[in-house]
Amino acid sequence: MSKKVKFIVFKYDPLSEEKPHYVSYMQEVDRREMVLDVLERIRKNIDPTLAYRHSCHHGVCGSCVALVNGVEKLLCKTRVFNVIGRSNKVVIEPMRNFKVIRDLVVDLEPFFTKLRIITPALIQSQVSQDRETPQSPQNVEAMKQYEECIECGACYSACPIVASDPLYLGPAALMVAYRTCLDERDEGKMERLRLVDSEEGCWRCHNNMGCTEVCPKNVDPASAISGLRRMILSRRLVLWRGRFG
């Protein structure tokens, strides 16, 4: 079964164009085809200038996130027939909250800079070279959901607070902070909590839940942000008890 579908694609080259514009392509689409498959066909047969990121085609690398009819989606995992609705059209735009480099390609640097601020790796004062650092199965289970993050930037794009506050760390960085704080082998918990316990940290989140809604891996960054708040409050309570108790 196939259908004729109208693809309306965002086109913009900041180096040579003043304003972005949209280009329409009519395509015969098979029910099994993904949005990325159609984009590849358009690029191969109609418009070789069309720019977009892609790599693994299996929803693992997180390169191909774009807005499909206004919602952040992995293009390689989004079936065209699931998003066309009654209008039989698909509007493809670059992610929000990022600077467009060209067409659907955005500059992810601010996103990765914020991830680096959190120090997403394990912090240990003494790393043994000859034996593993053990982690309990319960701890692995607690962290498992957050390990699924592929750092695609969909949550950062969906967050309305990032749009109004460029210094806000954003859902992905806060989720990573929570994940590493959960890790019983990590020794940087206090430092990370101090970092996120700020105006631009976990208290900036206004519970829009867009991050959780759009995450292609069902990571649920909103619960991680809440978890950070709980950790911070527990820590403060302990300090308060120590001072007055």
Binding site: G70, G210, E213
Partner: peptide, 21 residues
Amino acid sequence: HPVKLSSIRAWFDFKRKYINN
């Protein structure tokens, strides 16, 4: 604190069609 007032319109995006929005 650099909250951009002009970007507050991004808070009201009707394309985000989920209940919490």
